[in-house]
Amino acid sequence: MNIFRISADLLHLASFFILIFKMKATKSCKGISFKTQLMYTLVFTCRYLDLFHVLGMMITFNFAHITGLTLYNTFMKILFLAASYYIVYLMRTELKSTSDDARDTFVLWHILAPCAVLALIFNAQFTILEILWTFSIYLEAVAVMPQLMLLIETGEADSLSSHYMFAVGGYRALYLVNWVYRYATEPYYSNWIAWIAGFVQTALFGDFFYYYFVKIMSGDAALKLPT
């Protein structure tokens, strides 16, 4: 565990709270892609299946392999799952009337199918858990596509949405730094699958980061994209 990893997880956690705060404060989910949020619930569901194993060990008081890191990871996994499902729940119940589904036009199987095929071919182990974990890594890298398309179509984002996107995009960039740090300081095998996917994921936010920093520099309230 290192400072880059901890700050990455906290930035990721912040992204959930920014989005939930924005949806609750404005009582609206306008400009937020439901499809991207749905993809994130699928990402965490496929990635954190080992939760059942860890929780099973805890309720049977088998603490032999439970380390502090495992506790931290378990706590964060539960938080991430709860937050992402809550967001999807909010968008389909309380805030359904404000949903932007008409403009949320990205075709999901364009990312689901390639990720599933890639996970079956390029994985570390051909086991259900590992293939689902790998699928979640690939899917998370492109899950932001529907949101980016919606943002481009809208042409601009209010400040909270842009801070949300910065947090979601920034956390994986910090994970890349964490991997470099671990590679340099630990006998750590660099998981090239997570590396490449993490790099693609961060790159996808690239032009968004550019407009975000331009907005910060120019002190604009809303993020403007070239229409």
């Binding site: 990893r5 997880d9 990721h12 299946l49 080992d50 194993h53 860890v54 060990m57 392999h65 439970i66 380390t67 890191l69 495992t70 990871n73 964060m76 996994k77 991430f80 570390a124 858990l129 590992e130 974990w133 994970y175 964490n178 997570a194």
Partner: peptide
């Protein structure tokens, strides 16, 4: 063995 199926990150 770590109960987290070999992945110790989120």
């Amino acid at each position: 063995v770590s109960p987290e199926s070999g992945h110790d990150e989120l």
